[in-house]
Design a protein around this nucleic acid. Structure first.
Lengths: 182, 182
DNA sequence: TAGACTATATATAAAGA
DNA sequence: TTCTTTATATATAGTCT
């Protein structure tokens, strides 16, 4: 019997792959290829690149040369440092976009510690109350203004301890915009 | 006369291209190819991707599906919670190494204090009215394992996420927005 | 700085391990 | 999920317009 020859690479339609398993494999290969291309571009041209990918499984994959954060920083800085950055309204916009790092530089250690302590306590309190009411393995999720992203819940990857809790609170939200502390 | 046949694509060393003009062309072609690959990946796998590139000329080029900012937002939200260190201030240290942008925008101490007070009050509210907060329209709670996936990073850097705590607060103050700390 | 062209380098779809 | 293999689809280096 003739051994089955490979069909070789087949052309595929530019549309979402339906077969889930197939999609997973394709994602894996192409994501890898994408990062490789980016890496080459960095080398060949000496440029800086950041890539962020949210996988179908909800994982975050990133590439960065020299590193993702500094590039994001520059990217956001660029946005928020436009010509009318002195205009009050623009300033608020800018503050929304500014990256954490810069903001943190404005906070003294003392304030940060206070903040942290408040958060820790809040966490404890919420944890106590929360555990009474909810099944920790299938918590649920929503927010008034569509502000918070919804993440897929997966089995723990061996995360230690009981303090791994995420709490997001949206009170009287009129803003449709919210960022995170911690 | 015979027309000169093309040499075809030649293999090139993985190193910075020296000839400036050549570099420019290569950058242009490859950057285009990179974005195309990203676009295909989005389509084939239904995923979200953001790419930021600083060109040799100092221009910023970006690709984003559905858009760069929302992806950065989600990315930062996760990073800020992922760390091997139990030291809540490790990121501050990291920031010292990050490029510092001289912002005109910074939160004044007064605003910080307002913010802190707001959080203190929130903390009380949570403590006293935990049950109320379970209302999906005003609160969001999730367990750490589900919310904080580890995220991995390819070629140049890697951070292994170990869940800590994430608190997002949007208080009805005169801020009109909140920001990330850490 | 941006399109062709063409031959060749690479990426990758399929299928099996 | 990750790696192989094979055949084929794509990307692109070098050159010219």
């Amino acid at each position: 019997m003739a051994k089955k020859p490979s069909m070789g690479r087949q052309k595929i339609k530019i549309e979402k792959i339906e077969v889930k398993n197939h999609l997973q494999v394709t994602f894996s290969k192409r994501r890898s290829g994408l990062f490789k291309k980016a890496s080459e571009l960095c080398t060949f041209c000496g440029v800086e690149i950041a890539i962020i990918v949210f996988s179908p499984a909800g994982k975050v994959l990133s590439f960065g040369h020299p590193n993702v954060e500094s590039i994001i920083d520059r990217f956001l800085a660029r946005i928020s440092t436009g010509s009318n950055s002195h205009d009050p309204f623009h300033l608020i916009e800018a503050q929304r976009n500014a990256s954490v790092r810069e903001l943190n530089l404005q906070l003294g250690l003392e304030e940060l510690e206070q903040l942290r302590d408040a958060m820790e306590e809040l966490k404890k309190n919420v944890t106590q109350h929360g555990n009474k009411l909810m099944n920790p393995s299938s918590m649920f999720v929503s927010n008034g203004a569509g502000v918070f992203d919804q993440y897929e819940s997966k089995p723990s990857h061996g995360i230690v301890g009981s303090s791994n809790m995420n709490v997001a609170v949206n009170v009287n939200s009129n803003f449709g915009y919210c960022h995170r502390f911690f």
